[in-house]
């Protein structure tokens, strides 16, 4: 199958479009999360999404309708992580681990009670971007638009809290609100990204583009742009390679992402040898 033939299929066009939008969101948010040392929040929220998807399936909410159950639960969980970090005498990673454990254990019990694991639930473990439906693409586009709008409007506040919470507060920025906004936008993106790469690999979509961009970027805006380019390119290349080589799309996307990261590290050693160690 050649490239033009691949691109002529509707399901592949939908996968490429939705995948690019989701990758754009995840890679831009990833820069803020990595710099705020909240890299693993994607993993934690993905596990909560697994649990909430089990609830949705138990309640007979399938496909797009399952978002009506998963979205509010994952949004609440993201705020829960934030509150545990702020008030619960827990570090960010411990709070994420706690909420993550709750999500995955609830999911396993519900799946078990509901008659064992079914195909719908398993597809959330490994993702299945090629099965994405038109309505899911529309939802991804609308959410992408909303999240990108918020990121644009609050860019400087997000930049300021990533640099220093303390200095941001003394600049009159409502850091609690901006922190909450960041984790809520992440929660929305994680729910969307589940379809793309699944629970097992979701954090790579948030972390790896940011980590790659941090190797080369000379400036905060440049870092965000590089992360977006790496994230989107990985999805486009990953989906096409997976079809041509008959490989799972999710794992291929992540491996391409990691190759970009390795390339960025190598380039850094040549361009900035003094700062490479």
């Amino acid at each position: 199958m050649n490239l033009l033939e691949i691109l002529s299929y509707g399901f592949i066009q939908r996968a490429l479009l939705a995948g690019t939008l989701i990758a754009l969101l995840c890679s831009v948010l990833g820069v803020f999360l990595v710099l705020r040392r909240l890299s693993l929040i994607g993993d934690g929220l993905a596990h909560v999404t697994f649990g909430s998807t089990a609830i949705a399936l138990a309640l007979k909410f399938y496909s797009v309708m399952s978002l009506l159950v998963t979205m509010p639960i994952v949004l609440l969980a993201s705020l829960g992580i934030l509150k545990l970090t702020e008030k619960g005498r827990l570090s960010g990673d411990a709070a994420i681990g706690l909420v993550s454990a709750l999500g995955i254990s609830a999911g396993i019990i519900l799946a078990s009670v509901g008659g064992g694991y079914n195909v719908d639930l398993l597809s959330y473990l490994f993702g299945n971007i090629l099965s994405i439906r038109s309505e899911e693409v529309v939802i991804a586009a609308l959410l992408c638009l909303g999240v990108m709008l918020m990121l644009t409007l609050y860019y400087h506040e997000l930049f300021a809290i990533s640099f220093s919470d303390e200095l941001a507060k003394v600049s009159g920025i409502h850091t609690s609100f901006i922190n909450a906004l960041l984790v809520l936008l992440t929660a929305l993106s994680v729910v969307l990204a589940m379809k793309l790469v699944g629970i097992m690999l979701i954090s790579s979509l948030l972390i790896v583009p940011a980590a790659g961009a941090l190797q080369l970027a000379r400036g905060f805006k440049v870092c965000i742009m590089l992360a977006a380019v790496q994230g989107c390119s990985s999805v486009l290349i990953g989906i096409i390679v997976s079809i041509m080589a008959n490989l799972p799309a999710s794992a291929t996307i992540v491996l391409v992402n990691l190759l970009f990261f390795a390339a960025a590290c190598t380039i850094r050693r040549f361009i900035y040898p003094a700062h490479s160690n």
């Binding site: 400087h156 941090l214 400036g219 905060f220 805006k221």
Partner: peptide, 24 residues
Amino acid sequence: VFPATVHETVGLGLLSLKCFPKRL
């Protein structure tokens, strides 16, 4: 490893003068 330039970092000090949406 924070990727901000000196110019961007100093610009953060101006945010307290700005209303929403903050723009330099």
